[in-house]
């Protein structure tokens, strides 16, 4: 019984914490990330940068879930910020996982995502599109 109550409360709090993220909060969080966060310096080791990148990817993941939940009714700036951070993570994530995270949006709200990607510099936009399409291909055909 104790275990059940503990499990219930932990699940309740987890769901509460994920629900807590609003579009505005998500946007502010995305806006807070910059190129400097991913620079390896004396104060910022590779491990710290790796953790920061993980945090960015988690935020993108949450934001994607948010857009899906809102059925695409989010401001264009939100989408633009999301793709900006997605490209930013390429710098320290050799697997470029952010492309994979955007796949659900690409499948369901392609025009919305394409519009946001168009605001990126040409090379970044090309890289991100390739990575998303690569992730879709990988899902269908495997990686072996």
């Amino acid at each position: 019984m104790k275990k059940f109550i503990l499990c219930f409360f932990s699940l309740f709090f987890i769901s509460l914490s994920t629900q807590a993220m609003t579009v505005v909060e998500g946007y502010k969080k995305l806006q807070s990330y910059s190129y400097k966060d991913l620079e390896v310096t004396k104060d910022q080791s590779e491990k710290v940068v790796g953790q920061k990148t993980s945090e960015m990817l988690n935020t993108i993941d949450q934001c994607v879930a948010l857009v899906m939940k809102e059925k695409g009714n989010v401001p264009a700036e939100f989408m633009e910020e999301m793709v900006r951070v997605a490209v930013l993570t390429f710098q320290n994530d050799p697997l470029e996982s952010s492309g994979e995270l955007l796949v659900p949006l690409y499948k369901q709200y392609k025009p919305l995502l394409e519009k946001a990607i168009d605001h990126l510099p040409k090379k970044s936009a090309k890289d991100l599109r390739e990575r998303i399409e690569g992730a879709i291909y990988e899902e269908i055909h495997g990686n072996g």
Binding site: K47, G50, L57, D61, S97, L101
Partner: peptide, 12 residues
């Protein structure tokens, strides 16, 4: 295919 220096980030 590529080299990762440490185990971060690896999401999902």
């Amino acid at each position: 295919e590529v080299y990762r220096k440490n185990n971060q980030p690896l999401i999902n």
